[in-house]
Design a protein around this nucleic acid. Structure first.
Lengths: 166, 166
DNA sequence: ATTAGGATGGAAACCCGATCTCAAAATCTA
DNA sequence: TAGATTTTGAGATCGGGTTTCCATCCTAAT
């Protein structure tokens, strides 16, 4: 059974890591940049640009970051190796990359949740398949789609309720 | 070693199959519909709407089909089970579904080619992973990205040529 | 503190595949 | 073959995530 994913040992926090990145390129560590790194790494969620904007303070409030800046910074975080993108049904979804191991996803079509898992056997199989086709692997993306436990349970409950009414 | 994919035994051609589909819905078997099914199933390629349009005769020529009709008919073919879509880096790519087995892809980042493969072991692993997470599988999508044999060979040749010049 | 130049906010522009509109053409039925 | 109905073609239009523009603000180095 694949366990909840463990963090990779890293010597510095995402914020520290990003600061180094900025330094090395002569870029400035501004309020929006600090705030967004903090926010994004304060919880381990998947999100797209819009969802992130929804989570942040509204215009006029302390800590507000504009739409254009959010887009700019998300691109920077990806560039810096902090985040990684997943293309899922048209939208671009972001997830932690720095300090987080390679993994794949189960995608629930009902509640839209992404469940992570790690499988060494998958990697082995992938490399074997590539070798058979004399293909040089750079990476892969596996998304298993279907319905998660909670949604299945909820559905079962609904059915039972209907049956009870009869 | 996974072999080139074999066609599934089917009792009728894609054209015949599509005609049945049209009949059953009281739709008409028009020239554009006949022509497009013929064209699409005359070779086993992956394509998007634009590529398909490029392959068809230009405006004014015999056999011309308009952009809007191409989009309309592609949707019909998917609905009819003739084609299946793959979302690849933003664009919608179509491939044969009818008379063709489930499979996955190797995607060459250099020449953009899609190479098909089939793996029972992958299905087994997928189902096992899903079971471990009490997840009900509907399907999956695996894309292994990297570089194909031809592109690797071409690159090697270029390097050798450079070396020769020294 | 000053200041040069990088960064941000707000809004407009963009991108572009996909869809819609509707008059004209094609198909099927009787 | 006439009539009813579906389908097509051409162009306009859409949608919405993303990018650009630029005046203003902010940061960091001096």
């Amino acid at each position: 059974m694949s366990q909840p994913l463990n963090h990779v040992e890293v010597s510095s926090t995402p914020s520290e890591r990003f600061e180094e990145y900025l330094q090395s390129r002569g870029m400035r560590n501004t309020k929006p940049r600090k705030l967004l790194v903090e926010h994004i790494f304060s919880s381990h969620d998947h999100f797209d640009a819009d969802e992130l904007l929804d989570q942040l303070p509204r215009k006029g409030r302390e800590g507000y970051v504009s739409r254009s800046t959010v887009y700019r910074l998300l691109a920077e975080f990806v560039e810096a190796g902090l985040l990684r993108t997943i293309e899922l049904e048209g939208r671009t979804v972001y997830e932690h990359d720095y300090g987080y191991p390679q993994h794949d996803h189960l995608h629930c079509a009902t509640c839209n949740k992404l469940i992570e898992f790690q499988s060494d056997e998958l990697i082995r199989l992938r490399d074997q398949l590539a070798t058979e086709h004399r293909f040089q692997v750079k990476g892969h993306r596996l998304i298993i789609s279907g319905e998660c436990e909670e949604c299945l349970t909820a559905k079962r409950k609904r059915v039972r309720r209907k049956v009870d009414l009869i």
